[in-house]
């Protein structure tokens, strides 16, 4: 599998990252190396094997849908880079 500019661009967009022009070639090379490395897994014959999704041996436990942790609004907003005392502020989303 070859990493092209297009694929790199697409992954960066999905990951919400920008790739500065001057870092692109180096990153492409690293990405390619990492991918070649993990490609080794394709050799393993996994026919008939179920994917292992849960590593815990606990049974699912249901509980009442009650909030346990109660944070005050003030606390929640405390770490925000931009807020107005009520809400987090973000740049305008809907364009005219």
């Amino acid at each position: 599998m070859k990493i092209t500019d297009e694929l790199l661009h697409k992954m960066a967009h999905l990951a919400k990252l920008e790739i500065p022009e001057n870092e692109r070639e180096a990153l492409k090379k690293d990405f390619q190396k990492m991918l070649n490395f993990v490609d080794k897994l394709q050799e393993v014959d996994t026919r008939g094997v179920e994917p292992l999704i849960h590593i815990t041996q606990e049974k699912n436990r249901l509980r009442k849908d009650e909030a346990i942790l109660k944070l005050e609004r003030e606390q929640v907003l405390k770490n925000a880079p931009d807020q107005d005392g009520q809400y987090f502020r973000v740049p305008k989303v809907v364009k005219k």
Binding site: Q42, T46, V49, E50, P51, L52
Partner: peptide, 15 residues
């Protein structure tokens, strides 16, 4: 499928 799912299967074999 080729990567993530394959790895989850290999993880089961490892376990």
């Amino acid at each position: 499928q080729a990567y993530y799912e394959q790895a989850m299967k290999v993880r089961r074999m490892i376990r």
